[in-house]
Amino acid sequence: MHIIVCIKQVPDSAQIRVHPVTNTIMRQGVPAIVNPYDLYALEEALRLKDRYGGRVTVLCMGPSQAEAALRKALSFGADEAILVSDRAFAGSDTLATSYALAAAIRQIQKDMAVDLVFSGKQTIDGDTAQVGPGIARRLGLQLLTYVSKIEGIDVEKKEIVVHRRAEGGAQILKTRLPCLVTILEGVNEMRFATMGDMFRAARYPLKVWDKDAAGIEDIEKVGLKGSPTVVAKVFAPQPRAQKAERIETQTGAPADLAVTLLAKLFTRYPHIEREIRKQAG
């Protein structure tokens, strides 16, 4: 079983601050992390490896610093790591990214057949959930998104059965390998890195592929040129014109505050009272 896991290095958006005056992103000191959603994909791949044997290759497209994300993945037990990095990729949107990653996966396949490609549900910076489906389409792989559970793999028949989160329930799907699976968040818990793997990860000779090594055939399809979407403007959310009306009473006692609030609410918004009555039956 050879599984490729696509991981992205992202800024820890919990720590991103917007400059209050200029509305620009203050990136200084914001740590880069492995996209949290991708760790569920990695753990699921490692579990399949534990179950069926095989190899896990982690693949990342990004600047040279993204090496850190790959080493992190190695420390959890990934077998091999490849960084796809080239200035030509700068400004790639999801369409261009899936083109570059699909090309790299074809290259990997030349050395060893690939049974499964995993990706996270989405990234916390791009947040589009499109790169996975994009890669599947480009490689002609069956696509299984929002997978919450891998029921099992029939290695002989090359078939996989998964639970997929759909609206209002779970779809149980069976398909043929190779296929692309995007893993839902929260479905597993990442294992602890072992000392041995941490040492190995630190010393591991990463493969870094430029556009040629990654097998990019059409340079027009990556970077800004290969990206149909254009950011026309970035701006701060509109502050609401009006601040909250403060509910205050003489005593400040909770019961008084509550009664005062209800009186104001139901006078100004009779439809809310109607709604509450409707719900209450």
Binding site: F89, A96, T123, D125, T229
Partner: peptide, 10 residues
């Protein structure tokens, strides 16, 4: 100039 998939970084 970092390669990225985030449109906002353009």
């Amino acid at each position: 100039e970092a390669p990225s998939t985030t449109p906002a970084k353009k």
